[in-house]
């Protein structure tokens, strides 16, 4: 083996002056196991290049890449009317449940007392019950008169009203 020739080729290789054929010769030389020690440091480089020539993308490369970049195929699903309005039904059921709970609680809370007024802010205008009695009774009379008038307006021909009027005008 002409090791001087290999030395010259190496020198030219480092200067990037070798042809493709000469580089192929170098790789063939370094693929052998038997060589002088001074060439061993360069062996890995040329073996690496030899190995990398055989490394490719593989037959499944296209499939793998396309599966990553293509959008997933979504199959159309037929939605029934029930499925469509299901969220609204759920919301309505929740509201109904709350209203029902509130109503039941309220009824049980005010079971004995139907009045829900806050009388704390009431300040009596009169401090004498007799004066207050007169005011309440006059208010009741006014209300009675208004109801009577209203009834006579709605039922002008009723005998009841004629009877009332005749009694009141006596």
């Amino acid at each position: 083996m002409d090791y001087d020739y290999i030395d010259r080729l190496l020198e030219r290789y480092w200067k990037c002056e070798t042809s493709l054929k000469e580089e192929s010769e170098l790789r063939t030389f370094f693929s052998k196991s038997d060589m002088p020690k001074r060439f061993l440091p360069y062996k890995d480089l040329f073996v690496y290049q030899q190995i990398q020539k055989t490394v490719g993308l593989g037959s499944d490369f296209d499939v793998r890449v396309l599966s990553k970049i293509e959008p997933p195929v979504v199959k159309a699903k037929r939605l029934t009317m029930f499925v469509r309005i299901k969220p609204f039904l759920r919301a309505a059921a929740a509201v109904a449940l709350i209203v029902l709970c509130g109503n039941i609680t309220e009824r049980s809370y005010f079971a004995d007392d139907k009045l829900d007024y806050n009388y704390k802010d009431y300040k009596d205008t009169f401090h004498d019950p007799e004066v207050a009695y007169k005011k309440v009774s006059s208010a009741l009379m006014m209300l009675s008169e208004e109801i009577k008038k209203s009834k006579s307006q709605h039922f002008p021909d009723s005998l009841y009203q004629n009877d009332l009027d005749s009694v009141c005008t006596k």
């Binding site: 300040k123 009596d124 009695y133 009774s137």
Partner: peptide, 28 residues
Amino acid sequence: TCITISPKMMNEILELNENVDTTILGMI
């Protein structure tokens, strides 16, 4: 002009014995 008769005064009215109309008192 606002006149207010509170529940307390209503109870006092119900306790009146003289010069009251029983029909009206029954309504009160």
